[in-house]
């Protein structure tokens, strides 16, 4: 079973993603900020139980999704885990291409339908 880490400061969004992913057979873990996300990722390596995909909200207060991505990149973790963004902010100056240049696998726009989320997650966890 694939393991997904959902990181979003909005509990409703995280809950929804968890329900959809769980119903589709994924194992889903949630955190609500960038710092605890990093902690969770580091812990998973110690237990040798890494995530298949981290679904990361871009705009979070304090430590943003981009900050998390950069921190993971510095730690050298990006080679071991797939990170993808999901964001409600289509006006941010960075578009999907920019995210991909930064090392993310892709970006899912909110709001998403069940099919969109499952397609997106399926695409980035396969292989």
């Amino acid at each position: 079973m694939k393991k997904i880490l959902v990181v979003d400061d909005n509990k409703n969004v995280a809950d929804l993603a968890e329900i959809i992913l769980t119903s589709a057979g994924y194992v889903c873990t949630k955190t609500n900020n960038g710092k605890s996300c990093l902690d969770a990722v580091r812990a998973s390596y110690q237990n040798d139980d890494g995530y298949d995909l981290i679904l990361l909200d871009v705009a979070m207060p304090g430590f943003s999704g981009v900050d998390v991505l950069n921190a993971l990149k510095q730690e050298g973790s990006l080679e071991r885990v797939n990170v993808a963004f999901f964001t409600a902010s289509s006006a941010t100056s960075l578009d999907i291409a920019d995210y991909e240049k930064m090392g993310a696998r892709g970006c899912l726009r909110k709001p998403f339908t069940k099919a969109e989320l499952l397609n997106f997650v399926g695409k980035h966890t396969s292989g």
Binding site: N10, V13, I20, S89, S90, K110, F112
Partner: peptide, 21 residues
């Protein structure tokens, strides 16, 4: 505009998602 988009779309996420579920 960036702020407004984000703030408008975020509440739609659970509405779109849960109604579908």
């Amino acid at each position: 505009a960036a702020m407004i988009t984000h703030e408008l779309k975020t509440p739609l996420v659970p509405i779109v998602g849960y109604t579908e579920l």
